[in-house]
């Protein structure tokens, strides 16, 4: 079995990639996919710890995270569609009606 550190490093890298993606990408759907990547990095962390600690809580948590991510995806995509209908764009640069 691999040492826990390996899983943690991988998940940290995934999380970082997701974060960077959220901050740099312009397409809302891509941003959302990056967020999903972050969530999955978290899931990996949870499972690695769960395995390492011999404690099932982490895996249960992952179930809920997945469920929530699905619900979020449903709502988020609906919002994007509504936005797209009005704006004909899904670029976050275009989310600019409300500015300082």
């Amino acid at each position: 079995m691999l040492a826990i550190e390996n899983y943690l490093i991988v998940s940290a890298i995934l999380f970082a990639i997701g974060t960077i993606g959220v901050l740099t990408k312009r397409n809302a759907i891509v941003i959302f996919m990056c967020i999903e990547l972050m969530l999955n990095a978290v899931n990996l962390t949870f499972i690695a710890f769960s395995r390492h600690l011999g404690n099932i809580d982490g895996q249960v948590f992952v179930f809920f995270v997945m469920t929530v991510a699905a619900a979020e995806a449903a709502v988020g995509l609906a919002l994007m569609i509504a936005f797209f209908k009005n704006r004909e764009s899904i670029d976050v640069e275009d989310i600019n009606l409300l500015k300082l």
Binding site: F63, T67, A71, A73, A74, L77, A78, I81
Partner: peptide
Amino acid sequence: SIKFYMVAMLFILFDIEAVFLYP
């Protein structure tokens, strides 16, 4: 058609329930 999106969304939601049903 928005219908395709609806199907996808409903699939996600109902499929996730299987996550709980399997274990």
